[in-house]
Design a protein around this nucleic acid. Sequence first.
DNA 1: AAGGGCCTCAACCGCTATAGA
DNA 2: CTCTATAGCGGTTGAGGCCCT
Length: 300
Amino acid sequence: MVRTPCCKEEGIKKGAWTPEEDQKLIAYLQLHGEGGWRTLPEKAGLKRCGKSCRLRWANYLRPDIKRGEFSPEEDDTIIKLHALKGNKWAAIATSLAGRTDNEIKNYWNTNLKKRLKQRVLDSTTPKPINLTGKTGLEPKNHKPVYSSGPARLLNRVASKYAVDLNRDILTGIISGNTTIIAENSQNSGEVYSPTSTLVNSSVLIKPIPYTASTSSGFSDNCSLSDDLTDFLNNEEISDVYSTVDNFELMEELKGILSYGGSGNGGLEDSPEFLDSWNVEDNMDLENFVSSLDSKVGVFF
DNA sequence: AAGGGCCTCAACCGCTATAGA
DNA sequence: CTCTATAGCGGTTGAGGCCCT
């Protein structure tokens, strides 16, 4: 399809709008209503392209736009909806009266994202509890029995990158039916307290197999074959984690798996590196995770 | 006081989707 | 069915303000 030229013509002004331009645009739209953006600038006496006029109106001049700081309630809504929808700013904006997609996107990138990352960092203090001889969970007796792709992948990522993973988050993700075992010899006999961080490079996440009578846990038809966002958006998972706390839980996991930023040659907003693993390939996850080295560089 | 770095957010860019001729 | 115009979306940019040294 031939691309429609926009703002390519000579004499078209760019940059910040002046009050006079705003007035011209408002006056024209009050008189004629929205639409006809291509011809609007000439009719309204503006040296702007139609697209620029439409954006100025939609994001700034529209009378129903709410300006000012976001309320805590709006923060919560954005966080929850972002956990569900990802960077679908327009979809999120439909649930926040008076807020534009652009405004929400900026607010997320400059405030909420940082706040969530900071929360993840604050929650990653390791507190191992020595329960040697009391748990019956000696590592050598626990060859992992994986029942789901997600759990396996999380485990492999954790073990491969010695990443700080908050156990609360992971146990939540695995619906509480999870045993976490320190496998490394120097940690033999240890498990971690519910508030601990998994800092060891050989941590196992062992979900109890899903059964039809269990309302929580993973079924085999829920996998990470696409990406983590899809996984988290999976209806089955969303149903399990429909409370406020668990929305935050999901958000934190996303934060952890994206933590590190592009500046480190790593990840930023979404775990797209997971895309390369397809369950149908029957690829060994260990090989897959090993291959991530070359894909993401310094991870975390 | 100055200036360098950081942060915010309006505006732009590139692209897709959709409607209608 | 094809082509074009328009609307809309998400990512990115850069001007200006703020803060710190």
